[in-house]
Structures are given as structure tokens and as C-alpha cells.
């Protein structure tokens, strides 16, 4: 598969990186307020990849051996796509007391906790991006994509509805806790093109 139709230049990626950096700072701040804890932010890494390669990249980020739980949340309006939030299963359980939940967690409560965290991260991150680009986004409710699976089992490449994954690798971790999460934004081809146009306007305005 080639990427002739949708591509981002180095300059566009650099602009997007800084936009994401600001957005994830806001997401981290929201999370820190909810958890009353200091959130460590990594340098966001941005890569545009072909969607079928995504399993391989996810394995790279989270490690093959790790059991993960994934939430998906779609967004639409100026850009259409889907945001995936990946959590290590162990880290989720670690988060429960900080969110005020009693241990051990039953499946229903764990789900509720993941919805909350996913909403915070996806909402703050994507709204932050949209705001800086002067775009509007709406969100559907999050749903569980997979619970406690190996990273390699998360996707079957044939069933992905998106041609491209804008791999926005945003890592949030908590000091003294095992919680870690990764955010990945999946975009359709025309959304990448629309994003490129918005980035050009942003760059020109600097």
C-alpha cells in the first residue's frame, strides 16, 4: 500500500507535534486534577502510518507481552476519525483507588472507570487540537474495543475502517503508580487531507 494520496510534510508534522504537545498538556492537567496526582508527560511522537501496520506499532509502544484494554471513541465534524486509548490492564486496577473506587473492582466498575479516563484524555486532547486549528469536533460515547488482550490481538487488519492511523503517541504516566496510557488517532484519507490544509493555514499565520 502506498501513501501517495495522504501525506504530511515535515513542516506540517512539526506544527502538529507542537499543537499536540499543547493539547496533551491540557489533557494531562485535566487528568491530574481528577486524580489529584502529578502526571508525567512524554514528548509526543507523531507518525502517519498505514492502518494495517498499526498492530506492529502498538506492539512496539506497549510491548508484546503486556495485556491491554482499549477504548474507542469516534469524532466527527471538520475531521472524522476515531481515537483509541490503550491502557495496561494492571495499570487500570492501580488507578481505581485514586478515582475513589473500592478494590477489588467488578467488571462494571472497571468499565465505568475506563470510560471516565478515556473521556478526559480524548476530550481534552482532541478538543485542544481542534481549538488551535479553529476546527469543530463532536464526539460519540466511548466503547470498549477489547479488554485484557495481548497487543497483537487488538486489531485484525482487514476489519479496520480507516486507511491511515495518525499515530499520536501520547504517554501519560503517574509517579509512584503503574498507570500508563497511550492515545492513537485514526483518520480516514480525506480527514488527513483536511488536517493538512488546516496545518498549512496554521503555519502561514505564524
Amino acid at each position: 500500500m502506498t501513501m501517495n494520496n495522504a501525506n504530511l510534510s515535515i513542516e506540517q508534522i512539526d506544527a502538529l507535534q507542537e499543537i499536540v504537545n499543547i493539547a496533551m498538556g491540557q489533557a494531562g492537567d485535566s487528568l491530574a486534577r481528577v486524580l489529584d496526582s502529578f502526571v508525567r508527560l512524554s514528548v509526543p511522537r507523531i507518525r502517519l502510518i498505514n492502518a494495517p501496520q498499526i498492530s506492529q506499532y502498538i506492539a512496539e509502544i506497549v510491548g508484546d507481552a503486556e495485556q491491554i484494554t482499549a477504548m474507542r471513541q469516534s469524532f466527527y465534524n471538520n475531521f472524522c476519525g476515531e481515537a483509541l486509548t490503550l491502557f495496561s490492564s494492571e495499570g487500570c486496577r492501580d488507578l481505581a483507588p485514586l478515582m475513589g473506587y473500592q478494590q477489588p473492582l467488578d467488571a462494571e466498575t472497571e468499565k465505568e472507570l475506563l470510560f471516565d479516563i478515556s473521556n478526559i484524555l480524548v476530550g481534552a486532547c482532541l478538543n485542544g487540537i481542534a481549538e488551535q486549528l479553529g476546527a469543530d469536533l463532536n464526539f460519540s460515547a466511548p466503547s470498549i474495543m477489547a479488554a485484557n488482550v495481548a497487543s497483537s490481538q487488538l486489531f485484525s487488519p482487514d476489519t479496520l475502517p480507516w486507511a491511515y492511523a495518525l499515530q499520536v503517541e501520547v504517554n501519560f504516566s503517574l509517579e509512584d503508580h503503574k498507570f500508563k496510557s497511550h492515545l492513537i488517532i485514526m483518520l480516514a484519507e480525506d480527514a488527513i487531507i483536511a488536517l493538512g490544509d488546516s496545518l498549512n493555514s496554521f503555519i502561514e499565520a505564524i
Binding site: I22, A23, M24, G25, G28, D29, A32
Partner: peptide, 9 residues
């Protein structure tokens, strides 16, 4: 000058 705007930062 930071994007990390947490009060603790």
C-alpha cells in the same frame, strides 16, 4: 514556557 500546565509543574 510549557504545555505542561499542571499546578504541580
Amino acid at each position: 514556557i510549557s504545555a505542561d500546565v499542571q499546578p504541580k509543574a
